[in-house]
Computed example of a mutant assay.
Amino acid sequence: MGGFHMLDIIVVAAIALALFGPKALQSMARSAGKGVGQAKDMKDKLMSDLPVEDITKITNNIPQIPLNPRQAVGMLLAADESKAKEAKTAPKKAEEEKSQETKANES
Results as ranks from 00 to 15, higher is better:
G2N: 12
G3F: 00
G3Q: 00
G3N: 04
F4Y: 04
H5R: 10
D8A: 07
I9K: 15
V12H: 09
A13D: 08
A18F: 08
L19V: 13
F20Y: 10
K23F: 14
A24G: 05
L25H: 04
Q26T: 15
S27I: 12
R30V: 12
R30T: 12
G33T: 08
Q38L: 14
K40C: 09
D41G: 15
M42P: 04
K43C: 10
D44W: 11
L46S: 07
L46N: 10
M47W: 12
S48T: 08
D49W: 12
V52C: 02
V52K: 04
I55F: 01
T56F: 03
T56S: 08
K57Q: 02
K57W: 01
N60H: 02
I62N: 00
Q64M: 06
I65C: 02
N68F: 00
P69K: 07
Q71S: 09
Q71T: 02
A72L: 01
A72M: 02
G74M: 08
M75Q: 09
L77A: 09
A79N: 03
S82I: 08
S82H: 07
A84I: 12
K85R: 14
E86G: 06
E86I: 08
E86L: 14
A87W: 05
A87T: 09
A87D: 13
K88S: 14
T89K: 14
A90N: 10
P91W: 01
A94N: 06
A94Q: 14
A94H: 03
Q100R: 14
A104E: 15
A104G: 05
N105M: 10
E106H: 09
S107F: 06
